[in-house]
Design a protein around this nucleic acid. Structure first.
Lengths: 340, 340
DNA sequence: GCAGGTAAGTAAAACGTGTCAATCCGTTAT
DNA sequence: ATAACGGATTGACACGTTTTACTTACCTGC
């Protein structure tokens, strides 16, 4: 008798066991799960009841094998410890979670080998699409994905192929806004503390800054190029400015600005009384700085959400999906470091 | 003629197409992929050659359906925007990537509903194991995972069931080390600016601090409890201390310390000359603060790596796996905020 | 009362891989 | 020379779900 107990043999509960217990066929259970509108209300309720009683959990592997696509997407960023990317990742994760998707997060660590490995891994997992901040331009490392019909959305990077969405922030406008603000405050001798100009963001912000300066007669932009975007480099860069202080300093990033601020305060230079100071990114942690930092806020979290939404739209409707390049406008956040 | 072209019908290349092209059976191709040692060197080379020529990518869904387990693990944290968790996530991701695993990252946003949803989702995806910082104690929300034989490792939290690994940092020792350092510097009237004491970490650090104070005659600990662990709360908390300044202030976290520092400097209180100040966590971004902050460093990245390693060990060898509770010792990092 | 239509549910065939018993073939021991 | 052996390979089935074509029952309009 006990040996003929059905559905409890090995403890694993599948669609079949549910069907048996609910007195329907497996196909109907599948319909309840995937197209509930096609099954009568009564049956649907009974099946759902059994599902929760038995603690049935759908097998995602079987599901995506048969259906040809699952509920997974990939997210590949440069660095999981960088606040910019994590805020972005938070946006992506929130939206995907709302939509019932799981996110495989991976880091390329700005290494092309690792990027390739990740791309392969994502392809194997059969992800529905991938959000990516590519390591570098050049030959198309995402080819493998495109061949397999896996959609990609570029994050904080212009699209590299015609048929592709991208989401980024207008760094030229950001640089312009920043310097225009400094000019408005009366500054004329302005310094730009940049990161490496090979980084697109740094170069674009510089371009915007130059544009703003040219619009005001008598204004000039000095430049110092730091070797990376850290507080330490900012501090070193500031030393080049101590001999002849400018009216205002615009930094390519908040971390640089923190370093500059530290160098200035150590030398007894008062901010903002003697020098105005601006950062970029408006990272959360600068609120703790000795002088509250004026900055350019980028909607990183929103960036992630929008990009995620675009990706899903493309996945759900690959036929008539219009690829778009979304360009966010950054926002000026004024605090005490530029307020006399 | 063209109609009999095998293996190119629908453009999708599977194990069968590879087998055909290499002149072996699908079973052999599978063996090359999973147990290369069982197939002769010559055959193996030929198969691998064909695999790369045809651009074969294994179907992970089919693989894990048949094998009963895949190359996926889950990571669930409270908040993807918190540097503590992201540093930890970076450690997990690095190790998993080295071992060929993909990581599904999700955030519980300290909501039990979302935690439950994530648990279910991870179970559906058939993850091999899960690394988790649980939202709260009480009834076992991870039951679903354990029923299905999915291993879990607790992150920064003691194990809640006997058969479970956990990785955390000794917060009592950390609190003790911090305050012992302040005492050594000559402070006797010490204030502890805490977060909510319902948070285990805050309570443990307090316990350690008290222990240190009791060991030195004449020393005393005042306490202020902030409502959360942000710079803003730190600033508010500091105002309770301005009337009668202590010799030193120990904060439950660097963000609080940043707020306290700001409040002190605004009032013209010099750090460290008048008051010593200590934080906790040693987050990267405090290096940018006006006064470099002494702190207690937690090996967050290593924490992630070790936890990941434990999880894989448990997965690969569930039989004779000895569950362990690993307790890291935090490290004192002395900077100018406690150096006269 | 009957043809035609629709809604609800069923049965069975896939999806692409892993596994295991079975087979093949060349080598060694008797 | 034959039997026993062992390594290399094969063939076919199973994993749990989705999906398609099909059946059944019921309703509508003439």
């Amino acid at each position: 008798m006990a040996s003929s107990d059905p559905g409890q043999r090995d403890g694993t509960i599948g669609i079949k066991e549910v069907a048996l217990a609910a007195g329907v066929s497996p196909g109907t259970v599948s319909n309840v799960l995937n197209r509930p509108e096609r099954v009568a209300a009564g049956t649907r309720a009974r099946v759902m009841q059994v599902i929760s009683e038995l603690g049935f959990v759908r097998n995602g592997s079987a599901s995506s094998l048969r259906a040809g696509q699952g509920k997974l997407v990939g997210l590949m960023v440069h660095d999981l410890a960088n606040p910019f990317f994590t805020s972005l990742a938070a946006g992506v994760e929130d939206l995907m979670s709302e939509r019932g998707y799981a996110v495989i997060v991976c880091s390329s660590a700005t290494s092309v080998e690792r990027e390739d490995r990740n791309v392969r891994m994502l392809a194997e997992q059969g992800v529905r699409g991938v959000l990516v901040t590519p390591v570098q331009d050049g030959r198309d490392r995402l080819k493998l994905l495109h061949e397999r019909g896996i959609g990609t959305v570029m994050l904080d990077h212009a699209a590299t192929r015609a048929q592709q969405c991208s989401v980024s922030v207008d760094d030229i406008a950001g640089g312009h806004t920043a310097v225009a603000h400094l000019l408005e405050q009366g500054a004329r001798d302005i310094a730009y503390v940049s990161g490496p100009l090979t980084i697109r963001q740094c170069a674009d912000r510089r371009a915007g800054a130059l544009k703003a300066v040219r619009q005001v007669p008598g204004a000039a932009l000095r430049e110092v190029e730091a070797s990376d975007l850290t507080p330490r480099s900012g501090q070193e860069a500031a030393e080049h400015l101590l001999a002849e202080l400018p009216d205002a300093i615009f930094c390519a990033n908040d971390l640089l600005a923190m370093g500059v601020l530290r160098a200035l305060l150590q030398q007894g230079v008062r901010v903002p009384e003697r020098v105005l100071l601006m950062g970029y990114d408006d990272i959360e942690f600068t609120t703790a700085s000795a002088v509250q930092l004026t900055s350019i806020r980028q909607p990183t979290y929103q960036l992630g959400r929008i990009a995620a939404e675009l990706l899903l739209e493309e996945c759900d409707n690959p036929a008539d999906h219009a690829h778009q390049e979304i360009l966010f406008q950054p926002e000026l956040v004024i605090r005490e470091s530029t307020t006399r």
